[in-house]
Write a protein that binds this DNA or RNA. Sequence first.
DNA 1: GCTGATTTAGTACTTAAGTAGGAGTTTTTA
DNA 2: TAAAAACTCCTACTTAAGTACTAAATCAGC
Lengths: 177, 177
Amino acid sequence: MNNALEKSSADLPGSKNLLEKSKPMIFYSIGLALLLFLLKWLELRFIIFRHSFEVYIGFIAVIFTILGIWLALKLSKPTIETVVVEKEVYINSIENSFRQPDGFELNTSLITQLELSKRELEILNLMAKGHSNKEIASELFISLSTVKTHNQNLFAKLDVKRRIQAVEKAKRLQLTP
Amino acid sequence: MNNALEKSSADLPGSKNLLEKSKPMIFYSIGLALLLFLLKWLELRFIIFRHSFEVYIGFIAVIFTILGIWLALKLSKPTIETVVVEKEVYINSIENSFRQPDGFELNTSLITQLELSKRELEILNLMAKGHSNKEIASELFISLSTVKTHNQNLFAKLDVKRRIQAVEKAKRLQLTP
DNA sequence: GCTGATTTAGTACTTAAGTAGGAGTTTTTA
DNA sequence: TAAAAACTCCTACTTAAGTACTAAATCAGC
């Protein structure tokens, strides 16, 4: 048994992202719960009026708020814009050393060469951060199945078998920070 | 020679600071409170005109739908910025655009600090290269069980849950090339 | 020789990951 | 406007990974 003392000096916790991402939804849920309690409380305060009416209104409000959120999430386009730029690509040029201080430069030409889609890249990035399929699914508001499908295509395009190989290759080829 | 089209897409929402995220929530709460009082007031008004109940409900529905949409848009993906990456890309072929042999310096002090054993480090390195447990086992001439045991200890020492997180952390902390 | 850490190995179990194939919907593009 | 991508989701399955123990050699240092 190794009871190693927890002495993490200057590392960043890895699981913070998940919490941060789902936080809005949690807040929202809590908010809704609080709202319901608030409605109940108001009901007791202003008991002059009919209970059923209050509950009915509250119900309507909640339902339509949810509807609004659903609508927004479903219909709003993800505000990711794609900028197309023409570039010169020098073949057989000497590989010069970029890897400068703080210097991550996305290998955009390679991305188009490999025909990686926007979504696939997005998933690749999350993968590289160590997130599981389930986490990726909930972070991108898609199902686990979809993530797996994307993974299949991603692995095929990168010509790898496993997710760590994908990440290893992606980092090596500057596809992800 | 070749003119290549390059796409560069903006990445991931990223982790916004908490304050920015909770700010809408506060506004929303205040808005709700105001709205409830407004509803109360309206109730007093409309109690005389019972017949316009449907109008009232419709009003509430619309208001809360709009609120929901606004909330969702505010919270879900806070204005992803488009990043136009303009850079000269020097490539040979897909496989040859490696990262440079940059000065990798093993963080030996951290290794001793984390109490990583020789074998664990060995396994970590193979892991970082994308090898599976089975592959690692046969490469080190040990059983799969042993690899798994080492993994458990390794994950505990690195304070991670999955191998991919271990690799990510190891690379970040210069524990492996 | 004793102690403690390391390395090895096991069972039994649960969860995650990956595969194969199909299919519907949306968006882009020619 | 029709075709082609891209994105979504599913079932059913297999394999890999991880957990939670237990335990026995091995070896270095006292």
